[in-house]
């Protein structure tokens, strides 16, 4: 008899079986505890999980000095993470079943084990989330006067810095998430949610706000902002979608389907700027003073 622990992310119920994220040191999950009825997304600990022979490797990448491989086999996605001081294997189906093979507590570096588990849960949430209209974006997000602004950009472009400047210089502005907010895309409504995944900033907020704008950042000596439409907007958004997912045809198709309404209904901007107060004012005015035009 196993107990289920219930959480939610981006309004989607998440359950855990034989796996307690908070007991594993992932306190970032605490704000996401939920009394709601369980749904199809279930994370289970399964220490018998193995990679099926002949699995296709879709993508190889590094994370936390750990060699990671993204595979597809027997209708499921697999993530193998190998580090001499911790190794983990996860499997995720689009149906919502996510299995994680954890290394033994004694054999693994606890800090690394925690980091890998946090990543495995984010990764495992992806395929099921995409199928349910939830798109994790690599972004820093603020809520200004009840509406979310998401900042996108390559690592080191100043996403977090931009969010910090907004919360510092603008009234009624708070950080929503600093690494992986989740867009919930529905027919008439696109909202940004906080999530248990927020990079190095402990900002784990289980709340959402309608999206006012998505802003791609570029460092520049002078501050300029301009709206992006059509192909430019799409090109601004695609690189910030979960990178390993874009190596699967099925998941990429799903991402494209989700981005269509985002491009059609959400203002997207390119902000080229220095990290200063002028850039914040420029962007705020462009987004909030022209919002009625969209």
């Amino acid at each position: 008899m196993s107990t289920l622990l219930h959480y939610s992310a981006a309004g989607l119920p998440l359950s855990f079986r034989e796996l307690d994220p908070e007991a594993e040191g992932l306190e970032c999950f605490a704000p996401f505890r939920s009394e709601a009825a369980p749904g199809p997304i279930v994370f289970s600990r399964d220490d018998t999980l193995t990679l099926p022979p002949g699995a296709d490797t879709l993508h190889t990448f590094g994370f936390a000095e750990t060699a990671c491989r993204f595979h597809f086999a027997a209708g499921r996605y697999f993530l193998s993470m190998n580090h001499p001081r911790a190794a983990m294997l996860s499997a995720a189906g689009t149906g919502g079943d996510v299995a994680v093979h954890l290394p033994g507590e004694a054999s693994a570096d606890p800090v690394l084990r925690r980091a890998l588990l946090r990543f495995a849960l984010w990764w495992g949430f992806g395929p099921a989330a995409l199928l349910r209209g939830a798109l994790p974006l690599h972004a820093s997000a603020v809520v200004h006067r009840g509406r979310a602004v998401l900042f996108l950009g390559e690592s080191g472009t100043g996403k977090s810095t931009q969010s910090r400047l907004w919360t510092r210089f603008l009234p009624d502005t708070t950080l929503l998430n600093d690494d992986s907010p989740i867009l919930r895309i529905r027919r008439d409504d696109i909202a940004a949610w906080g999530s248990p995944w927020s990079g190095k900033t402990p900002c784990y907020r289980n709340l959402s706000a309608p999206v006012a704008a998505i802003v791609r950042l570029r460092q520049a000596p002078h501050d300029t902002i301009r709206p992006l439409k059509g192909a430019e907007a799409l090109a601004a958004l695609l690189p910030s979608c979960p990178p390993s997912m874009t190596h699967s045809t099925q998941l990429t198709d799903r991402i494209c389907d989700l981005l269509s309404p985002v491009v059609a209904r959400t203002p997207v901007f390119l902000l080229a700027c220095r990290p200063d107060r002028q850039a914040v004012t420029l962007a705020r005015d462009a987004i909030f003073d022209t919002a009625h035009r969209f």
């Binding site: 192909a231 799409l234 874009t246 389907d257 981005l259 491009v263 059609a264």
Partner: peptide, 11 residues
Amino acid sequence: LRETAGLYILL
């Protein structure tokens, strides 16, 4: 080739 957001794009 993939259709998205009313555009035909190359992925």
